[in-house]
Computed example of a mutant assay.
Amino acid sequence: MKKLLILLIVLCTFGCKKYVVSFEQPTNIKLDNLKLEILLDKKKVQEISLKATKGMPGYEIAELPVSDAGKHLLQVKVNDTTFSYDIKYPEERYILVTAYLKANGKLHIGILKQQYNFRLR
């Protein structure tokens, strides 16, 4: 039984290739109920609705599949604007997506990519 459990852990660790994408929930009340459409290689994968918080931002985590090539185009579509980012697996396995308003009132989607997991508190 112990060997089977170890084998299962090893297979899940090395067999499951996924991008871990964290969507930061904004602290700006103007971005409450904003819908983000997530596309991976121009195919809709998920839709996220942002919920504004008053204190520290919260995070919603999604796992996106990886192809054998490991290179993908991640797009975040908001209203009539699409933000595109090239991502590579495994160098950029963990992704943090943040929506914020610029000083001129326009919406911008920022992205942070890294190989190791984020410490979100």
Rank of each mutant, 00 (worst) to 15 (best):
M1A: 13
P90W: 01
Y94L: 08
G105P: 00
V20S: 14
I6V: 14
K42Q: 13
N33S: 15
V78H: 08
L64Y: 02
N104Q: 07
E92P: 03
A99C: 10
T81M: 11
K71R: 12
T81R: 07
N33G: 08
Y59M: 03
K30M: 09
Q25V: 01
T27M: 03
I48L: 02
L11T: 13
N117E: 15
Y94S: 08
M56N: 11
G15N: 06
K3I: 11
F23I: 07
K44N: 05
Y59Q: 02
K113C: 04
I87N: 01
K102D: 10
I6R: 09
Y94P: 03
P57C: 02
C16V: 15
I29C: 07
S49M: 14
Q46F: 03
L74E: 00
V21R: 01
L101G: 03
E63L: 09
K71Q: 12
Y59C: 05
S22H: 15
L74F: 02
G105A: 05
R119Q: 10
S22A: 15
N79L: 13
C12H: 12
T98F: 06
G15L: 06
K2A: 10
L36N: 01
K113E: 10
L107F: 04
D80C: 06
K77D: 00
K18I: 10
L120V: 10
K18E: 13
H108T: 13
S84H: 09
K71L: 13
H108Y: 11
S22F: 12
G105L: 11
Y94N: 12
R119I: 10
Q114I: 05
K71G: 08
I109H: 02
D32Y: 07
K88E: 15
L101R: 08
L64K: 04
L64S: 02
Y100M: 11
S67A: 12
I48W: 00
S22T: 11
S67Q: 12
K102I: 05
D41Y: 02
V78D: 00
Q25G: 01
E37P: 04
S22W: 09
R119K: 11
T82R: 11
K30N: 12
A103Q: 14
I111D: 00
Y94Q: 07
T81D: 14
S84P: 06
S49Q: 14
V97F: 00
L73E: 15
Q25M: 08
C16L: 15
K102T: 12
V45C: 07
S84M: 09
H72C: 03
T98C: 07
F14T: 14
D32M: 05
Q115M: 13
A99G: 06
